[in-house]
Design a binder for these strands. Structure first.
Length: 818
RNA sequence: GCCGAAGUGGCGGAAUAGGCAGACGCGCACGACUCAAAAUCGUGUACCUACGGGUAUGUGGGUUCGAUUCCCACCUUCGGCACCA
């Protein structure tokens, strides 16, 4: 009899901290360049130190860690670093609310989160840790700004910009979201403010950003970025006012030029005041003011009635030599194209509505194929389809498929315009009127103008002795001495820029700093850069699609053009995880009381169980609601792994049982290898559960202690190690295998062992399942057909009917058609 | 309105993708162990059935010997965009 009590119980609370300290002490996860191994840079998005590691962090990081471990066992030299995106508003809000310095708040949170992160048992190389609010980090953030400034990729502009009245700062276009145009961080609707701000020329890279050919990124992210960039092909066309003032418009339909019966300018268009006639001046001014106020409140839905006023001025349509009126209307946006349009009411719905509203002429110049002949007075909507050009002078009769290029050629020949491409994308506004960020390293000198801080004077340090006003105004502006300095060029008195940088700037290059976080000659050690870059796999949330994930691509390309980086893209492969919801299916939030705290789970079940459940409960890219009883299943599974592998049993299994055990072991290995590679984490766990069930059955029939059993155990632990690193290490040791399992090689599939000897042949009659018969592998089609027809169940289903056709799918199925 | 993703048992999901629908787990039911309970182990678990079989992967069509998988139309949910000329 076997003495069950001799088996020690599985105690994750003991083995997990034990192994974590041992791995740490041994530097097990340190990655250094090694020419003998292919490098693999695995990266998970760095967390913001909000105070507590939440289940979302675990969900993002655990599968990334498991896959990094898998890659390492496959023989890659894997670098898997971690850090903190430590600048940002919450720290400052805490400062204002609780009278605690943002630095103190941030660094205390980081300390706490480091401990929590360690409890996950990830293979982070902590030597590479980066904190973006450390002066030795933001020195180089500022340095990048200076390089961009020198290469004319950073510039200052005064314009109406999006401003969050709650966060008290300007925002980039990407950080304004939704129909009500609210702040990405706090949800408050933004307002427009006329301010002088720093921007990066991301629009220079619009075309290159649309090219995803070098990278393996999810289609959804590529689509979101493509839509955000919003490329439109068309033409610029210059009209002239009667007094000879040029007005340039952008259109995607140069083929409709002959139908342009009026022009519309945005109310803020700089030409408006110049061209407005004295009689119209008052009404135009009133409209401008109203439009200004309206954009200050909120932009309304697209369905609202068109408004606008006539300027009194006329322009000449060079194509028709016609005199056409110039209007202003708020449906034309100053921020897109040239802020002016040619209005073609017959072929653009918005222009149509405007023309009907104000009784402006409508002229048909496109006749779509198959449509009844269009008559302006009968139209109830614009016809936007392409078609044959009509009423278009020399170009009349041009077919739909040629109309665009023919029209552009005509316009260019006439010298009134040119083919062009515009983008919806705006330049990246990086100025923030906040304290807790990297100061923009610029000095304003009354004599020398705008001067970058010399590189050897970086970083521009944030002063510690600051005070917050309840108004939320940046303390840097109010600091008694900090802003006053001397000009680095002439030495005269000068002032510092008091704005800090968007924190997305900090997170645009951290993957380079990880390589050498304390290197003080350059943002990174070039030798390490050559070895490790680019990032091979990047993981994180898809909510960053048009922010971080676009900025980081821009940044890398811009840095390349400054001669700093190489390669077109920073991250070769991207995968996004979904979100863990509360048990009620809603987003977790303190106010809802549905928050699942990972620390509690670790205490109750151990990190390995939490890890395996997170990888098991849903498709990783989808996520879903937490289930408190679901995790019990994973807890049971690991206890069963423990018992099945450790508890001895009697031997004496038959050859068939052992053969079947080997087959299942290697089939599982094949499936699990595929799943790790392809981010299909949930089926890794179910395959491991299945194999354990099979091992349990084999053990009950005497497999324990046989070479086949030992092989199954060995392969099992190696497959388990990336998901549950602690229990795998502990069992590995208890079974007398050499430390550490995490430096072992990934096992090879023995295809011979994995091969089925018998297969289940599915027999259908007219596509309906009638029988399943066991046949040897490699059976001929004729034999399969014969066996299928011989089946009594099939004979019954055939009921004596004539067989018309038999389809045999080798190794799978026979379908008999009658 | 435009762009994109997704709809499979009571629940999470599987089916490497035209070829056995529901793997694995949760839950539930029954049984074993126990004075009892918990834990553990075992068995069962899509629906209907006149026990022959029939019906099922959001709905309706289509292609095919065969469709969760491909095509068309529609419905629902989620995400993005918002008069972008």
């Amino acid at each position: 009899m076997i003495d069950i009590t001799s088996i020690p119980p599985y105690k994750p609370e003991e083995i997990e901290p034990k192994w974590q300290s041992r791995w740490e002490a041994d530097g097990l996860y340190h990655a250094d360049p090694d020419p003998k191994h292919t490098k693999f840079y695995a990266l998970t998005m760095l967390p913001y130190p909000s105070g507590d590691l939440h289940i979302g962090h675990w969900y993002a990081m655990t599968p990334s860690d498991a896959r990094a471990r898998f890659k390492r066992m496959q023989g890659y030299n894997v670098f898997f670093p971690i850090g903190f995106d430590a600048f940002g508003l919450p720290a400052e809000n805490a400062a204002i609310k609780h009278q605690i310095h943002p630095k103190q708040w941030t660094y205390a949170n980081i300390e706490r989160m480091r401990t929590q992160l360690r409890s996950m048992g990830n293979m982070f190389d902590w030597r590479s840790e980066v904190v973006t609010s450390d002066p030795e980090y933001y020195r180089w953030t500022q340095w990048f700004f200076v390089q961009f400034f020198k290469h004319n990729l950073a510039y200052q502009m005064e314009a109406p910009v999006d401003f969050c009245p709650n966060c008290n700062t300007t925002l980039a276009r990407e950080q304004v979201q939704g129909e009500d145009r609210h702040c990405e961080r706090c949800g408050t609707p933004v307002i427009k403010k006329n301010l002088k701000q720093w921007l990066f020329r991301i629009t220079n890279y619009a075309e290159e950003l649309l090219d995803f050919s070098d990278i393996d990124w999810p289609e959804t992210i590529k689509t979101l970025q493509t839509n955000w960039i919003g490329r439109s092909k068309g033409a610029y066309i210059t009209f002239k006012t009667e007094s000879g003032e040029p007005i340039e418009v952008f259109t995607t339909r140069p083929d409709t030029l002959w139908g342009a019966t009026f022009l519309v300018l945005a109310p803020e268009h700089p030409l408006v005041n110049q061209i407005t006639t004295p009689e119209q001046a008052e009404i135009v001014a009133a409209y401008q003011e109203q439009a200004m106020r309206q954009s200050d409140i909120q932009r309304e839905a697209a369905t609202r009635e068109k408004t606008g006023v006539f300027t009194g001025a006329y322009a000449i349509n060079h194509a028709t030599s016609e005199r056409i009126p110039i209007w202003i209307a708020d449906y034309v946006l100053m921020t897109y194209g040239t802020g002016a349009i040619m209005s073609v009411p017959a072929h653009d719905q918005r222009d149509f509505e405007f023309a009907r509203q104000f009784d402006l002429p409508i002229r048909v110049v496109i006749q779509p194929e198959g449509a009844p002949e269009l008559a302006p007075e009968e139209m109830t909507a614009a016809v936007e389809a392409y078609g044959t050009m009509v009423n278009s002078g020399l170009l009349s009769g041009t077919a739909a498929d040629k109309s665009l290029e023919t029209a552009v050629a005509f316009i260019e020949q006439m010298g009134i315009g040119r083919g062009a491409v515009t983008y919806r994308l705006h330049d990246w506004l990086i100025s923030r009127q906040r304290y807790w960020g990297a100061p923009i390293p610029i000095i304003y000198c009354p004599k020398c103008g705008t001067v970058p801080v010399p590189e050897d004077q970086l970083p521009v340090l944030l002063p510690d002795d600051v005070e917050w006003l309840p108004t939320g105004e940046s303390p840097l502006k109010l600091h008694p001495t900090w802003r006053f300095t001397t000009c680095p060029v002439c030495g005269g008195p000068a002032e510092r820029e008091t704005d800090t940088m968007d924190t997305f700037m900090c997170s645009s290059w951290y993957y380079m700093r990880y390589l050498s976080p304390h290197y003080d000659q350059y943002p990174f050690d070039p030798q390490l850069y050559r070895y490790w870059m680019p990032v091979d796999t990047y993981t994180g949330g898809s909510e960053h699609a048009t922010m971080h994930l676009m900025y980081v691509r821009f940044f890398h390309k811009a840095a390349r053009d400054c001669g700093i980086t190489t390669g077109r893209e920073p991250m070769r492969q991207l995968r996004n995880q979904g979100m863990v919801l509360g048990e009620d299916g809603e987003k977790m939030s303190k106010s809802r009381g549905n928050v699942i705290a990972p620390d509690d789970l670790v205490q109750r079940y151990g990190a390995d169980t939490v890890r395996s459940y997170l990888m098991f409960f849903s498709r990783w890219e989808v996520g879903g609601p937490w289930n408190s009883s679901g995790i019990e299943g994973n807890s049971r599974w690991l206890r069963r792994v423990w018992a099945t592998l450790l508890e001895p049993a009697d031997g004496g299994a038959s050859r068939e049982v052992l053969r079947a055990l080997r087959r299942k072991t290697h089939q599982t290995l094949r499936a699990v290898t595929y799943d790790y590679e392809n981010f299909e984490f949930n089926t890794i766990i179910s395959s491991l559960m299945e194999l354990l069930n099979e091992m349990g059955r084999a053990k009950a029939t005497g497999a324990f202690g046989t070479p086949e059993w030992d092989e199954a155990v060995d392969i099992y632990l190696r497959m388990l190690a990336p998901v549950c690193p602690h229990i795998a290490e502990e069992l590995w040791e208890r079974l007398g295998k050499p430390y550490s399992i995490h430096t072992q090689a990934w096992p090879q599939v023995d295809e011979e062992a994995a091969r089925d000897e018998e297969i289940t042949l599915v027999v259908q009659v007219n596509g309906k399942l009638r029988d399943r018969i066991q046949v040897p592998l490699g059976i001929s089609d004729a034999e399969a057909e014969q066996k299928a027809l011989a089946s009594p169940a099939v004979q019954q289903a055939l009921a004596g009917r004539q067989v018309r056709k038999v389809i045999v799918v080798p190794g799978k199925l026979v379908n008999i058609v009658v």
